[in-house]
């Protein structure tokens, strides 16, 4: 696994989220690219790396959000690990696997975020309808899943792995 590449992916995703995706909203609900990274990392790289990428994506998103630092990190870490554990034995040759996992994982992530935020006293349940957030984020992330999946597969293999391809596995 190439950590510089992973860091680059997280940075690019954060820039896209903050400057592009956050501008589009439906009934107040906005896409969330950072949760997609956590979900796809769990799916493609396993629970441990899913948790690490989820934490990195969450904590970097927390820095630019006004919500408490650590809220996204906590939720995305759990989601990255859970998706990795839940899909460990899954056959991933189907072209629909990544979008389906992205949609389900993102939906679960939004529900968990709203729940944890409400427990911490944040107004996560008083904004846009939770149903519209879950549906929008799941739908957008299902569409973007192949792209995120390719990026994470690129990050999984560094130069040393290329020279010794069998060790990469």
């Amino acid at each position: 696994m190439s950590w510089p590449r992973t860091a680059l992916i997280v940075l690019v995703a954060l820039v896209l989220q903050v400057t592009l995706l956050s501008r589009f909203s439906y009934e107040g609900a906005r896409p969330d690219l950072m949760i997609l990274l956590a979900v796809m990392a769990g799916f493609r790289l396993g629970p441990e790396r899913g948790a690490i990428v989820g934490f990195a994506a969450g904590v970097s998103f927390d820095i630019v959000l006004s919500t408490p630092l650590g809220l996204s990190a906590l939720v995305y870490t759990i989601i990255g690990y859970a998706v990795g554990a839940a899909t460990a034995g899954m056959v991933r040759t189907s072209r629909w696997a990544a979008p389906v996992v992205a949609a389900a994982g993102s939906a679960a992530g939004m529900l968990l975020y709203a729940l944890v935020g409400a427990v911490l006293g944040e107004p996560t349940l008083s904004g846009p309808s939770l149903a519209s957030i879950v549906v929008l984020v799941a739908a957008v992330n299902a569409v973007l899943a192949p792209l995120a999946s390719r990026a994470l597969v690129w990050a999984r293999t560094d130069e040393r792995d290329r020279r010794q391809p069998f060790l990469a596995r």
Partner: peptide
């Protein structure tokens, strides 16, 4: 990671 996230939450 969870411990780190919770620590950040408490500190913030």
């Amino acid at each position: 990671l969870l411990l780190t996230a919770v620590t950040l939450l408490v500190l913030d």
